[in-house]
């Protein structure tokens, strides 16, 4: 079983969803793929398709217009799946929190597993977030096995 867990933890495929971010966090997510940070070391692939992905990386705050889109993408992912909210806006709504057209953070719509702070979030932090998400996934899996 350890090989299977290792495999699951060793191959997080991402789908990145921008819910009205200012593009600051998006750029930093992409920066993770560059030679400097190279997340592929951890088996991370930016797959671009929720049906293939394990981790949904969301940036930006949620508003009524994109709430349905976010839910739809989350639904189309296969279990086990994780959500990482990247940046202040995705975590809480950030500076847009009080806006009339903003619902708030991502967790208002779908369950979030890891919050990555920052405005914009640094690539190191994003990598940490994904790795933490993977750890949580491992816990989840072993918990299921135990129960």
């Amino acid at each position: 079983m350890s090989l299977i867990n290792k495999a699951i933890a060793g191959s997080p495929w991402l789908v990145h969803c921008n819910c009205g971010s200012c593009n600051g966090c998006d750029i930093e997510v992409l920066a993770c793929l560059t030679p400097v940070y190279d997340v592929e070391r951890f088996g991370v692939v930016n797959i671009g398709n929720p049906k293939h992905a394990d981790v949904l990386v969301v940036s930006g705050s949620v508003n009524p217009r994109n709430e349905r889109m976010l839910k739809n993408i989350y639904e189309q992912m296969a279990d086990p799946k994780l959500v990482v909210a990247v940046g202040a806006c995705a975590a809480t709504g950030g500076i847009f929190r009080e806006c009339y057209n903003v619902l708030g953070g991502v967790d208002k719509v779908i369950p979030v597993d890891v919050y990555v702070p920052g405005c914009a979030a640094r690539p190191e932090a994003i990598i940490d977030g994904v790795v933490l998400a993977v750890e949580k996934l491992k816990e989840k899996l072993s918990g299921e096995k135990g129960a």
């Binding site: 398709n49 889109m69 739809n72």
Partner: peptide
Amino acid sequence: QKTTTPYMCGET
């Protein structure tokens, strides 16, 4: 098994 709509950028 779980049946989903096709992927259409979340805007199905």
